[in-house]
Design a protein around this nucleic acid. Structure first.
Length: 115
DNA sequence: AACATGACGGTAG
DNA sequence: TCTACCGCCATGT
C-alpha cells in the first residue's frame, strides 16, 4: 500500500478498536482521524460499511448517545439488541448511557466502567 | 453544473 | 436548557 490511508480507512481502523460493551461517538472518531469537523464523513464511511467488514459499527452513536443509524441495520431494534447483548446501559429505547459506556480512542481499552 | 440531503459537532443567541 | 445556524464533504437528483 503505497497510497496513504483514506479518511474512511482511519475510521474503520478506529471503529475496529472499540472494546466490547463500550461505545464511541462520531466526533471522537473524526477527531482521531485528524478532521474533528468532518464528523459527517464518519457517518458516511460507516454507511458504506458492509457486514463483511466485521466492524462494530453498532457501537458508534452520536454525541447524545442516540442510535441515529439504527435503520441502517434494517431496524433500530437490531442495533439496540447488539448493544444490549454487550451490556451497554440504555437511558431510553434508542439512547445509551454515554456517561458510563463511552470509549475514547486515545484512551487505553479498559472494560471496567468508572465506579 | 447547481441544489438539496445526510449514521454530526460546535458555537451563538 | 433549548433552539438555530454554520461548517464539512461526498452522493444523488
Amino acid at each position: 500500500m503505497s497510497a496513504p490511508p483514506s479518511f474512511a480507512d482511519r475510521v474503520y481502523a478506529t471503529v475496529a478498536r472499540i472494546p466490547r460493551g463500550r461505545v464511541t461517538t462520531f466526533g471522537r472518531i473524526a477527531r482521531v482521524c485528524g478532521d474533528p469537523r468532518s464528523a459527517r464523513m464518519v457517518g458516511w464511511a460507516l454507511a458504506a460499511v458492509v457486514d463483511e467488514q466485521r466492524l462494530p459499527c453498532h457501537r458508534v452513536v452520536n454525541r447524545h448517545g442516540f442510535l441515529t443509524g439504527g435503520w441502517h441495520f434494517g431496524h433500530p431494534d437490531v442495533m439496540r439488541g447488539l448493544l444490549l447483548a454487550e451490556g451497554v446501559p440504555f437511558l431510553e429505547d434508542d439512547q445509551v448511557d454515554l456517561a458510563v459506556c463511552v470509549w475514547e480512542p486515545d484512551d487505553l481499552d479498559d472494560d471496567g466502567p468508572p465506579d
